[in-house]
Every structure is written in C-alpha cells, then in structure tokens.
C-alpha cells in the first residue's frame, strides 16, 4: 500500500470520524440524561442542513452565522418537541419513546420532502483550495470542518465539566432521583439537554451538507451511524462517543477503500455485536434497568 493512499484513508477516516462523533455526542447526551430512545435524531441533522441551505444558498447570508442560526433554530425545535412529546413518556418503557420518535421520522422526513422538494441540493462551500500532505491532497474545507468538529466536542466537554448546568446534567445522567433531591430541576435539564443534543446534530448536518449534498431523506443514515457509535461507546458517555465515532469513521474509510461498503457495514455491526456480547453496556456506558 502506497503512502499517499494510506494518508488519504487516514485523513478521510479522521474527517468522517469527527463528524460522526458530533452527531453521536448529541445523541448520547439525550440518551444518558433522559434515558429514552431518540430514534429521530438524524432528522434534526437533516433539518439543520436545510436551515443553513436556506440561509446561505437561498438568502445569500453569511455562512458561519448561518451555522449558529441553524443550531439555535434546531435547539428550539428540539426543546419544544421534548416538552410536547417526550416528557410524558419519561420513565415508561423505552418502546414508547421509540414509537414516538419513529412517528417523528415519518412526519419530518416526508414533510421535508413535501416542503423542500425531492431534488438534491448543495450548500456552496466558503473555503476552497488545499494542500498536499504526504502525497495526498487535503482540502482546506475538510481541514476546517475537522477543526470545527473537534472544537465543538471539546467545548461540550468543557461545558459538562465546568459549568453549573453542565454539572447538573452529569448529575442527572448519573442518578436522576438523587440529583432531583439535591434541588436540580430535572425537567429543565431534560429540555436543555434535548435541545443541545439536537443542535449538535444540526451543526454536523451543516458541515456534512457543505462537504457533500443534502436531501430530505439523509437523516436516517445519520441515525444509523449515531446509534452504532453510541452503542459502541456506551450510552451517556461523551469520550465513548468520540472514540466510537473515530472507530466507525476509520472502518468506513479503510474498509470501503480496500474492500467494499457492504463489508464496512458488516464489520461495523459485527464489532458492535461482539462488544455487546462481552460487555452488555458498551465500552464506557451506564447500566439501565
């Protein structure tokens, strides 16, 4: 294997891995704190990309502001849906949250196709050009996207470790009852976490949408990837989601280049199955009763 090919695969792997991790961290936050199945997570990824599309490609407004606007819009949408649909299901069998979020997938993706149309769209890139790294071409666009993803992941980690709300979130995720006794408003934490998790997916959608193309049905693949990663890393674990994201990113890059995409999926799912068979709560995850 030539060096340039190896470099290409590694760079692609890091790039994909960080973006997957961004989606998955949003999901793991919702999982860990609310203990529900949010199966429609990828739909927020899709909606986020479309918000940016209308902002940057249709209205021609500044790109980077658009990402913040997209995150804010999806935060509000996510928080509102939590209050309306998911709050009453808190503490019930996960089947109910699974069913409601499945309903959301049907509604959002079909509604998206009706509103946004079925034609594939693209968000114009703002960063162009690139540089040669060990014989492989690395575009500045991909570089910026990787840096932004990594920055957001670090930022979230800092938020969870150092701020009051962040610490409250971790407390709720570890033990909802005790933290509620300690005076934490768990209901508030729930909708904030749901909004934040969805907003992270939206940002990932913006970045991925710029790099590739967008279509209203793109959400489900993102959900699949996010679930693979979250289960691999363990529910509620941010470092787990980062590591899981990179693992899946590297499998996607290397196995797809060397063998085929179907094999990449088979290996990805088989890895998850084996890890769960030996460690039924994922690599770093919490145990649910």
């Amino acid at each position: 294997m030539a060096l340039d090919e190896l470099t290409q695969m590694t760079l692609t792997g890091i790039n994909l891995g960080l973006m997957y991790a961004l989606i998955a961290i949003g999901l793991t936050l919702i999982f860990g704190i609310m203990r529900i199945i949010q199966y429609a997570h990828g739909e927020f990824y899709m909606l986020g990309a479309y918000v940016l599309y209308y902002w940057a490609a249709v209205l021609k407004l500044p790109y980077w502001v658009g990402i913040i606007v997209s995150a804010a819009v999806i935060f509000v949408v996510g928080a509102a849906l939590q209050l309306l649909l998911f709050r009453p299901l808190h503490g019930k069998n996960i089947l109910y949250s699974l069913a409601v979020s499945m309903g959301l997938i049907f509604i959002i993706s079909s509604g998206g196709l009706l509103t946004f149309g079925t034609i594939v769209k693209g968000i114009p890139s703002v960063v162009t050009g690139g540089v040669m790294v060990f014989g492989a071409f690395y575009t500045y666009e991909r570089m910026v996207i990787s840096i932004v993803s990594a920055g957001l992941i670090l930022g979230l980690w800092y938020f969870l470790q150092r701020t009051t709300t962040g610490m409250a979130m971790r407390a709720v995720s570890q033990d909802p009852e005790v933290s509620s006794l300690q005076g934490i408003n768990t209901r508030r934490i729930h909708w904030i976490a749901f909004g934040m998790g969805s907003a992270m997916a939206a940002v990932a959608g913006c970045l991925m949408g710029t790099l590739l193309s967008i279509v209203p049905t793109m959400g489900f693949i993102a959900t699949v990837k996010a679930f693979m990663i979250v289960i691999l890393g363990g529910l509620g674990s941010v470092p787990g989601a980062l590591i899981g994201g990179l693992i899946i990113g590297f499998i996607d890059s290397f196995v797809t280049t060397l063998v085929s995409a179907d094999v990449a999926y088979i290996i990805g799912f088989a890895t998850i199955f084996v890890i769960l068979a030996f460690k039924p709560t994922g690599l770093f995850g919490q145990d649910w009763d």
């Binding site: 692609t12 994909l16 991925m208 693949i221 699949v224 085929s260 995409a261 999926y265």
Partner: peptide
C-alpha cells in the same frame, strides 16, 4: 468501482 447507496463520503471510491 461500485459505491453503496448509503455511502456518505466518496473519497474512498474515487481514490480507488
């Protein structure tokens, strides 16, 4: 080279 309908990134296929 064959790609998969669910492929997100086409770098691997195009590299090949």
């Amino acid at each position: 080279e064959y790609f998969n309908w669910e492929d997100t990134d086409f770098y691997p296929i195009v590299t090949k």
